[in-house]
Design a protein around this nucleic acid. Structure first.
Lengths: 230, 230
DNA sequence: CTTGGCTCGTGAACGGTTTCACGAGGGGTA
DNA sequence: TACCCCTCGTGAAACCGTTCACGAGCCAAG
């Protein structure tokens, strides 16, 4: 409570591409801190994060100057700065709808809890699943979604339902106050402008890999012929 | 076997940004076909895919001219063209390593099977899981990974293990012939240049949402104070 | 105090992506 | 057949992101 309630407001317009990399830096910094390092150069951080050092410096420059010339960045200070920048210093409540395998994986994903996300509720429409305990949380019926969101002032919703349920879920979330949605269902959601949606499609990623595979090797992969190579 | 073994090779340098959208178009087209439409305008397809019509036209132009001026695109023809372009007309074998909740979700994900991906094997290092049936496949021990890859000429690997196992798994995959890896573990993998890696980090996505949340509402969400809003 | 070496921070150049605007070329109708 | 309307395909322009190159600043050593 002694720290400034409204920090120096260091960054203004951080580019989207940079924002997308901040979590990666954050994770890399955590790993470096675990190794006992107290300082990193942009080069080291770049390697750990899988990007170029120029990118690291440019990205971090958007958050203000936090490095020391000739030395590098202070691991702990930089990590906490990025944490604040991402808003991860405040605890944020999340509701997950659709507790199939994916929903369970998300509910138990350490990356959520360790980054300030608190799971306020697990919701599923399937009667059979209701009441079941998943990672310390009871699965609750779909019609309680609104109550959960309102009660815990939830602003983040995760949709891990089948495609045909996703839009309904999104509508219900928005109605009760959710303003940021992470959508794993393979549909384009229709939401008001003030609501943020990010879509993650597991199949899409494999298809992109497939494209590059064709481009690179182009190898036909003889499933039918089944003849071993040479 | 009657179709040309080396198709017209229609597109040359398709931009990455376009490639990333092709699977989305493909899905949108499938949905439109289900509705019985035989033709779409770039505008309709754009709406269905959640992008702009200009993007659709530019993207599709990279694949060659497949639309009819004044009419639009033939749904079926375009879908099959994109399918071919992505290399999804050939069956591709995939191995999934790490059969926790995420691995199970992936194993059962319809988006894989319906897009030409055939799951050649599920692998887990946990003795307790081995032998268990998941979506019609038996979970096999980790030391059989190489055999599975070689036997089925697998070129696609999915890593759904904890972070500390991911690099070992990647090494084993690469050693036995995998050239495209989809990595869900929150680490940067070290692989040879000829191997393609795409990383999907579930926590990252929420953190990006969090950033935008701070920027937009900035609402503090009083978890500690716990006072209901006004 | 001065020197040398290292690394950040940043303007400028570059390349890729998106948007814009409009001409070209189809289909339908009279 | 001739006309109109509609939508694709595509250069040009605007925008964004990455890479490059180098000066500024800090630390350590002598």
């Amino acid at each position: 409570m002694t720290s400034s309630p409204r920090p120096p407001r260091p960054a203004r317009g951080v580019p989207d591409a940079t924002v997308a990399r901040l979590p990666v830096y954050l994770r890399a910094l955590a790993a470096l801190a675990d190794e006992g390092l107290s300082t990193v150069s942009s080069d080291e951080l770049a390697t750990a994060a899988g990007v170029t050092s120029a990118k690291v410096r440019k990205d971090l420059s958007h958050l203000g100057s936090w490095g020391t010339r000739g030395v590098g960045y202070d691991v702990e200070a930089l990590a906490s700065h990025i944490t604040r920048e991402l808003g991860l210093d405040e605890r944020r409540s999340v509701v997950i709808v659709g507790i199939g395998n994916l929903g369970r994986a998300l509910a138990g994903y350490g990356g959520f809890a360790s980054r300030g996300f608190h799971i306020a509720g697990l919701v599923d429409a399937d009667q059979q699943r209701q009441g079941e305990m998943v990672h310390g949380q009871r699965i609750r019926p779909y019609d309680q979604l609104g109550d959960i969101v309102r009660e815990h002032a939830v602003r983040f919703g995760v949709i891990a339902t089948p495609a045909d349920a996703a839009q309904d879920v999104a509508d219900a979330m928005v109605d009760s106050g959710v303003t940021s949605i992470l959508n794993f269902a393979p549909v384009v959601l229709n939401v008001p402008d003030n609501v943020d949606v990010r879509r993650v499609d597991l199949a899409t990623e494999l298809q992109i890999l497939s494209f590059h595979h064709v481009r690179k090797g182009g190898e036909p992969v003889g499933v039918l012929t089944g003849v071993a190579t040479s």
